[in-house]
């Protein structure tokens, strides 16, 4: 489990730096929030992916826990 988590984090960091290098385009004006706005573009996919994985993982867990609980409870 720890290995999977670590691997995900390593991928996150690699994807981030790859994206950072690809986003080096020329624009017009210095904005204090420029880094944050561009950063959202970079991480949105990543954060979204993590969130989807989490949602489906919870669904799988709840499916099996329901099934398990269902076996324990005798039918009325």
């Amino acid at each position: 489990m720890f290995k999977i988590k670590s691997a995900t984090l390593v991928i996150c960091v690699l994807v981030f730096f790859l994206n950072l290098s690809l986003c080096d385009m020329a624009f017009a004006y210095i904005d204090p929030g420029a880094g944050s706005a561009l950063f959202q573009l970079i991480i949105a996919g990543l954060a979204g992916l993590l969130w989807i994985v989490k949602v489906y993982w919870q669904k799988i867990i709840s499916f099996f826990s329901r099934k398990k609980n269902g076996k324990k409870t005798p039918p009325q």
Binding site: M25, A26, F27, A28, Y29, I30, D31, G33, A34, G35, A37, L38
Partner: peptide, 8 residues
């Protein structure tokens, strides 16, 4: 991006 000129 602090010193760059990005129109966001």
């Amino acid at each position: 991006y602090a010193d760059s000129s990005h129109d966001t």
